[in-house]
Amino acid sequence: MAINWFKYSAPSTFYGLAGKLVPWFAWPSAILFVIGLYIGFFVAPTDAVQGEAYRIIFIHVPASIMSMFLYLIMAAYAALGLIFNTRLSSMMASALAPTGALFAFISLWTGALWGKPMWGAWWVWDARLTSELILLFLYFGFIALHASIDDPRRADRASALLAILGSVNVPIIYFSVKWWNTLHQGSTVKFTGTSMHVAMQQAMFITLVACWMYAIAMTLARVRSIILERERNTQWVAELPEVRS
């Protein structure tokens, strides 16, 4: 069956498709979170060095991975919108930003919670935590720039340029922070166990998949509201049953 992809690049058709897809990602996400966290908290064995405190990685690691991936995906959508002038891509970029920022924030928060029992300090200037903090700043910049421009078209294009610039800069920032960290002999958050137990790997993988599902569901739900907001004066929005009632 050939799918006409271009049909779904129009906001009006994508609105309906996204609405149908949201539950298919939201429910599996919730179920996988429960399973993954159950394995992580109750099945996986206690770590010989870190005790029970290490279990925070089942949230911390997926959140960190997601925050970085989502920035790149956001920049890619923004670039598509800038180059091909497709409105939906730009809307996807602005729908992804808050979820990405949320993951970056969770990653920092859990990192701090992990740091306290490990080093006795809430915050250590570890290379990865510091990069994560800068990533959060980059998300804030994107969101703030988009929010302060009234004309949605200019907002999309300006923040797209910023996102591209940011994504080019992310590797440079990461490298420079790592370099800075080794020079100052900072601590590095590393998993100290010799090898990861199978249950740990399973839990980590399952929560990571759950995070992906969550991110997709949230983004689709958010892009639906953005579409409604931007297209509020069009005929098809006025004819929607949820708008008419």
Partner: peptide, 26 residues
């Protein structure tokens, strides 16, 4: 990017400072 925006002065720092971190470090 922030040309002609209200509060552009503060916003520009928010956008630019994170990107300048490598320069600061080296």
């Amino acid at each position: 990017l922030t040309l002609g925006l209200r509060g552009g002065g503060v916003l520009v720092s928010l956008l630019v400072l994170p990107l300048c971190i490598p320069v600061l470090i080296f």
